[in-house]
């Protein structure tokens, strides 16, 4: 027997769809020079953000954005039932230390760059299940911390290939509530780990695109809907070339989303900012969705968008041991 609130294989419908009552963003210097500069709550002018290390700077951004979201919701950390968060760093230290400082019951998540959507999906389930009144979700990433953990020291002279992406420096948070005013999360599709054999750690988008295509197609199959039923399909950080891959893969599955599809990574920088294939990182989908798209939804331009976070589940260890890069992708349906 299928569970009461589940449809198809991987999708849930919320009976009392949770409300996004507040969202907050903070973005790095480079992101603040990009097309979405005006949509961020705050842009930091130095990637150290007054701290000794990049890790501490990332943590400070996540803490501030969480506090800001709670404040915008007119609440205090004591009102929040759960905090769900994760980031890219080993042992998800940004999220752990932020949770320590906030003192909210905490569930740490690791979904790589899909964490914003993973936390939103689980948070919505907690609320619709009657386990929580308010859930705080959020994530962060930082160019400096991610580069040194996954790739090279930042000052090392390396010629990045044209398909490489640039890790977004920033953080985003949302407060989900059982009732209130704001856009609602009406459905979520939990993705499977998909691996089509891509192994280049400098090209994570081709590792993630099959997972994104799988989750989008699965959502449409599970709900019996067509792409035309949605205003927008938004993926997290596939970048310029990964976006083309996902459109091509969905075409093979019989869905044409080309006219209503966008990718946060492909949009977050201007081409002349020379990031090559666009942005990536946990914060990419977070700051663009919470910044630009939720505002556009509030303005009435968007009614129904399916936001898909895309994570490359690589570690330097598995890559060096010759493993390919598995991808994961979770989708959340946001309706005004």
């Amino acid at each position: 027997m299928t569970a009461q609130k589940k449809v198809g294989q991987q999708t849930v419908w919320f009976q009392n769809p949770p409300v996004i009552i507040a969202a907050a963003t903070i973005a790095g210097q480079k992101e603040g020079q990009g097309p979405f500069a005006k949509s961020f709550d705050k842009v930091i002018d130095n990637d150290y953000y007054g701290e000794q290390t990049w890790e501490k700077a990332e943590r400070r951004m996540l803490l501030e954005v969480m506090q800001n979201a709670v404040r915008k919701a007119g609440l205090t950390p004591g009102n929040i039932d759960y905090m769900l968060s994760g980031d890219l760093l080993n042992q998800i230290i940004s999220a752990n230390f932020t949770a320590r400082d906030l003192g909210i019951p905490f569930l740490g998540l690791y979904g790589a760059c899909s964490t914003m959507l993973e936390s939103s999906a689980i948070g919505s389930m907690l609320i619709d299940g009657g386990f929580a009144e308010y859930v705080l979700v959020g994530t962060s990433s930082h160019y400096g911390t991610a580069e040194r953990q996954f790739r090279f020291p930042t000052e090392q002279g390396v010629q990045r290939p044209l398909h490489a992406q640039w890790t977004v420096t920033g953080a985003s948070a949302m407060v989900l509530a059982r009732s209130g005013s704001g856009p609602r999360i009406t459905s979520a599709t939990i993705g499977k780990v998909i691996d089509l054999g891509q192994g280049d750690p400098l090209d994570m988008s081709s590792a993630m695109a099959p997972a994104a295509a799988d989750t989008i197609a699965r959502h449409l199959w599970d709900t019996g809907r067509q792409p035309g039923d949605y205003d927008l399909f938004l993926t997290g950080d596939l970048g310029i070339y990964g976006s083309k891959l996902v459109v091509s893969l969905l075409g093979q599955k019989g869905f044409n989303i080309d006219d209503r599809y966008q990718d946060c990574g492909a949009m977050i920088y201007f081409p002349e900012q020379d990031t090559h294939a666009g942005g990536s990182g946990c914060a990419c989908v977070g700051v663009v969705t919470c910044g630009h798209f939720l505002k556009e939804m509030a303005a009435g331009g968007l009614k129904r968008m399916f936001v898909v976070g895309t994570g490359a589940l690589l570690s330097p260890c598995s890559t060096q041991q010759g493993e390919t890069i598995p991808g994961i992708s979770h989708g959340v349906l946001i309706e005004s």
Binding site: L196, G197, S206, P210, Y241, L249
Partner: peptide, 21 residues
């Protein structure tokens, strides 16, 4: 599936600007 996908990736992935490099 992996072989077919590798082919699509190869088509879409930009070629390095060899002469310029």
């Amino acid at each position: 599936q992996k072989k077919q996908y590798a082919k699509i990736v190869k088509e879409i992935r930009p070629k390095p600007p060899l002469l310029r490099n």
